[in-house]
Every structure is written in structure tokens, then in C-alpha cells.
Computed example of a mutant assay.
Amino acid sequence: MSVCPQLSYAYRLLYVLNEGVGVTWSTEDLIERVGGGSEDIEECIAQLGRLGFPLARDPGGGVSLLPGVDILDRAFIRSRVGSIPIGYEIHYHLETGSTNDLAMEAARSGASHGSVFVSEHQTRGRGRLGRSWFSPPGSGLWFSVVLRPGLRLADSWMVTLGAATAIARAVESTCGIAPNLKWPNDLRYRGKKICGILTEAVPLRGKLDVAVLGIGINVNQDTRELPLDLQGNAISLKQATGRAVSRSELLATVLEELDLTIKNLNPGIVREAWLSRTDMLGAEVCVIVEKRTITGVAVDLTSKGALVVRDSGGGMHHVETGEVTQVSV
């Protein structure tokens, strides 16, 4: 019987290996399940090994997947998400350059509102302001959502800030910890980044025709699995809670919360929800806008999503875009 024909060959092979963790599969058994030939099987085993999935080979050529790998459970996610728009159509990938690129290409080809593109690994994952995003396989959630919210461009800020609060609710519901929001697109825990959001927009005649919401969540990484330059600034949910977190449950919960939020976008509601989950107000911040630097205290969030910063001279700055560093709480 073939497995998941819509998935890549290597991803289908991974799902079969995951059916019996620790069980040794012969090449013949794998061919029966996923098709192809022995060379195809060997090529995919090499790809899975390159990506870091723990495999064991026996002298006869058999292969097994070792315990400790959290493969996304498509059936569970489908049963949870059901027929709500966000998540009704989910595209799973083993490896891709960037899920945002996949989602944007699909959106331009007519992908429906709520289409989701998730990958076990990204080779060109990126964050806001063109930064790269570290996304090793099987340890985090790296996905993008196609949105067609029908908003005025002036109201497009609600997508990112609304998404941040939705993800925070999902993390709290799933893991029992409450992330703190950093303007405009990060979730933190104890001052360390746990999630980043990248929103890319396609305007049309003064409206937000399409928004692609890229989300990266550190879920089950250990400290040693984070690059040295990130270990002081990033944290995973596993590190925060002291236990492994089901990526499938978290993804399903995030999609449910996103759907609820995007259906009910309202400036006042989004603003109050965001303010209820941030500790930035009253904190000293440094803002870089183009080539200008503003230092002061964050004092408010406007009804248009701008961060209000009061400088040392009492001047008020409405920051709509830029790089914000929180210097103190």
C-alpha cells in the first residue's frame, strides 16, 4: 500500500519509518510501501541522515528511525482543525528554501485564504529585515499562511500584531507558559526569543490583497542545538517548560487561534489584546528607523499599531516600522 502520495518521496519514507520507531525496515519492505527502487530508497535515507534525523543501519542494509523524533501527525492536525478556513488546506514539505516563498508563489497562483505551507526544514528561512532564521528539522515549527483579509492598507498592522497575540494564546494553552510580546513581531520568554513572525504583503488598489504570514517557533531544541550566537537570545518551549512539546498539538492550536483572530480583526480589540501581553510599556528602548536612532521609553501603542516612544526631551515618536531593542524592563 502506498503512503501519502502528495508528499515528497523522502517525506513518505520518513512517515513509514516513523510507524515503527526502532523497527528495522528492509529495502524490500520500504519499496512495497513507498514504491521506487533500491537506489531511490538509499538516496532518501542519505537525505534524511543529512537533515539530522537519527537513523540506524544494520549489516544487512536495513534501516530504522531511532526514538525521540517528533514527526508532524497529519491525521491528528486534520481532526483538530476540521473545516475552519485557516488550515483547511495544509501542504507538508520535508525540506524547502522558505515556506514564505512557497506560500507567496501559491498565493499569486490563486491559493485560497488560509492555505498553510509547513516544512520540517528550511534552507533559506528568513525573518524580519532580511535576517536568516535558524530552522533545523523536526525540532520547531516553520510554516506560512496565505491570508486574504480584505483590509485597508492602513489597517494591515493588525495582521502581525493580531497573529502575535493568537500564537501567544496557543502557546499558553498548549504549554502552560505565557510568552511576552515584543513590538512588532516577536514572542519572548524570560527575555529570550521563542517565536518570530514575518508578514509579507501584496497591496492592490489601496487594500491588502494578500498577506503571507511566516511563523517560526522554537519548540523542542536543546541548548546545544542552537547556534552559539543565538544561545543567549533564543529559547525553545522545551527549555522553557522542561518537557518536550507536541508540535502537532501546538500547530493545530495555533491555526485555531489564528482563524479566530483573523475572522474578528478590529483595531481596538487587537490593540488591547497586544497590550495585555507585553511588558514593553515603561521600558527603555532603542529604535533604529532607517539611519536615525531614537532612544527613550515606550509609553503606548496607537490605534494604528504604532509604538509610541517618549525621548529624554519629552518628544513623542510614533514608530510604525524599524528595529526596536528593549534596553530595560
Rank of each mutant, 00 (worst) to 15 (best):
G232V: 03
Q231E: 11
T321N: 12
N185D: 06
G268H: 03
T295W: 00
D70I: 00
S98V: 05
L48H: 02
P227T: 01
I77F: 12
K263G: 09
S112G: 15
G232D: 11
L213P: 06
L275N: 03
L161H: 08
V23Q: 14
V287S: 05
D70Q: 03
M1D: 09
D222M: 06
Y92A: 07
R277W: 02
R148S: 13
L181Q: 13
G125M: 09
V3L: 11
G138C: 01
Q6L: 10
R108E: 11
G322Y: 05
V69D: 01
N185P: 01
E272P: 00
G216S: 04
T123V: 12
L151T: 08
T223R: 13
V289W: 10
R277I: 02
A10E: 00
D40K: 07
R152E: 15
P179Q: 03
N218D: 10
S246K: 08
L226G: 08
P59F: 04
E172T: 09
P59G: 04
G282E: 11
H113T: 07
L181Y: 07
L213I: 08
K207R: 12
E105L: 11
R148D: 01
R126Y: 02
T174D: 05
G206C: 10
R224G: 10
E284F: 12
G138P: 02
V16E: 09
M158G: 08
R80V: 12
G313C: 06
G52E: 02
V171I: 13
G305N: 13
C175A: 12
D40S: 14
T261G: 00
G150A: 13
S328P: 01
G82M: 06
S2C: 00
A306P: 01
V289P: 02
D73H: 02
V299R: 10
G314V: 08
G37M: 08
A56L: 11
F143I: 13
G140E: 01
R205V: 07
K263F: 00
P184G: 00
S119C: 05
P59T: 04
I269S: 15
M158S: 07
G162V: 03
R50L: 00
L301S: 06
G52C: 04
Q122A: 01
L204P: 06
V63E: 00
L301G: 10
N220P: 02
L260S: 14
F143Y: 14
L55E: 03
W142G: 09
I215Q: 04
E320V: 07
R108F: 08
A240G: 09
Y189G: 02
D40E: 10
V21Q: 15
D259W: 10
E290L: 13
L147Y: 06
G97F: 05
L260W: 12
I288G: 04
L94W: 01
K304Q: 14
F76T: 06
D29E: 15
V16M: 04
T241L: 11
H121W: 07
L251Q: 09
V285D: 05
S8C: 04
S98K: 07
L51Y: 00
Q231V: 11
L102S: 11
G214Y: 08
